[in-house]
């Protein structure tokens, strides 16, 4: 019984405490760099699209709101021919970012995406792709992958030895 009265008293005292509310549009809250907000597609340090259309983000997405289709340029570099995120479905869980093997898809600290028309929440690749590396700097998937692309032949990736001559029997 006493504890109830104490509770009442303590709650009453809270009337006079400093308020936690941030008056949002005038003042903005601090959002950590790893805040999970709007999704972007980034580029690698050379300016190429990081996304290789591996479909892992799409399959990781618990609400299936990512759809893409892959294609490749004449040198074998892969990129998405379209990349669509339906933000009216997105739950900002960040699984796509975790699944992404190339740091291409990233969630950034921006949540201000309200729209009067739901259709405007469907973002295509041109809406998602930024001209930068986003949160993760310096990573270039094709520098570590074995696939040959333009300006990177076989054996030129990091930690690769030059191509062997299969017709040689030398040790």
């Amino acid at each position: 019984m006493l504890s109830h009265i104490r509770t009442l008293w303590l709650v009453f005292l809270h009337l006079f405490r400093k308020k936690e509310t941030i008056q949002y549009p005038e003042k903005k809250a601090y959002l950590a760099p790893r805040y999970r907000g709007r999704i972007i597609l980034s580029r690698d340090p050379d300016g190429g699209e990081r996304c290789v259309a591996c479909q892992l983000c799409a399959v990781a997405c618990p609400v299936d709101c990512i759809a893409l289709d892959g294609t490749e340029d004449e040198h074998g570099r892969r990129f998405p021919s379209f990349f669509r995120i339906n933000f009216s479905r997105c739950i900002y869980c960040g699984f796509c970012e975790e699944a992404c093997p190339t740091y291409a898809i990233q969630l950034i600290p921006d949540f201000e995406m309200a729209e009067y028309n739901r259709k405007n929440l469907v973002y295509e690749k041109e809406d998602l792709l930024i001209n930068g590396e986003g949160k993760y700097h310096g990573y270039n998937f094709y520098r570590v992958a074995g696939l040959a692309i333009k300006d990177k032949d076989k054996g030129e990736a990091e930690n690769e030895s030059p191509p062997v001559d299969p017709k040689s029997l030398l040790p």
Binding site: Q55, C61, D64, C65, I66, A67, R84, R89
Partner: peptide, 8 residues
């Protein structure tokens, strides 16, 4: 994958 986005 992509059920809610394919035709969006």
């Amino acid at each position: 994958s992509g059920r809610t986005s394919q035709l969006a």
